[in-house]
Nucleic acid binder design. Sequence first.
DNA 1: ATCGCACCTGGAGTGGGCTCCAGGTCAAGG
DNA 2: CCTTGACCTGGAGCCCACTCCAGGTGCGAT
Lengths: 123, 123
Amino acid sequence: MLYRVSVYTPAEVVEETGFTLDTLRYYEKIGLLEPVERNAAGQRRFNDSDLSWLGLIRCLRDTGMPIAEMLRFAELVRAGDHTIPDRIRLLEEHDRRVQGQIANLTERQRYIHHKISYYRSVL
Amino acid sequence: MLYRVSVYTPAEVVEETGFTLDTLRYYEKIGLLEPVERNAAGQRRFNDSDLSWLGLIRCLRDTGMPIAEMLRFAELVRAGDHTIPDRIRLLEEHDRRVQGQIANLTERQRYIHHKISYYRSVL
DNA sequence: ATCGCACCTGGAGTGGGCTCCAGGTCAAGG
DNA sequence: CCTTGACCTGGAGCCCACTCCAGGTGCGAT
């Protein structure tokens, strides 16, 4: 078991990634996914590299990165290894925004807690 | 200085709350804000209670509560004090979602950190 | 008096991110 | 042979939450 290249049907990828099939097609259409390989019948056959890319996309999407910025990232990846410093910068900036989101949510949550306590106090 | 009721112009409320004037009008139109008082010329004059309600709206919105649910909350408030247990339930449920968001972001952030470290390691 | 400006209204338009649809292809099972 | 079901395409439609617009009012300053 040195290496094993797997292919995945659309249904498997939906299952694995949580994206809908429509969303996967949409991502391919706008270029967020490289053109996916096809079998003889023209049906998509995803590979491990697609899956791992989708894992990253899922992460960026779930942390609120807009599609336009994910596209920029995708272009950097396509452009080759010399863009790694740019990718780091992009991810670091995003990381800062995520940090800000967490801080903001935590702060807002305190307000909600106050509100709940207040309501409890007047019962 | 026992008590002081203030009124605020639209511009002041925009300044205070960070909502745009269009958004304030929109919130009033859909019933997220009670009809705001007007001066003789028909211009809005907000009061402290509007401001404090807008503070709550800001908090709920910024923690991702959809407008439809804020409207439900607004209806509970309008319906009177007997809905306080319902309001508590609603806020508690929202609080759980906020907690989930924070947990999720924190988890995703680790992935981003890994990715950054990986990129650093191949430089 | 007239200008600029903050404000008003109803309604149309926007942007992001999907989501759905009609109509079609193929492969496998009964 | 026929049906079922997973998949295909291009393009239209949808939802949310605003955002913008045209056309108009009234007030304070020059």
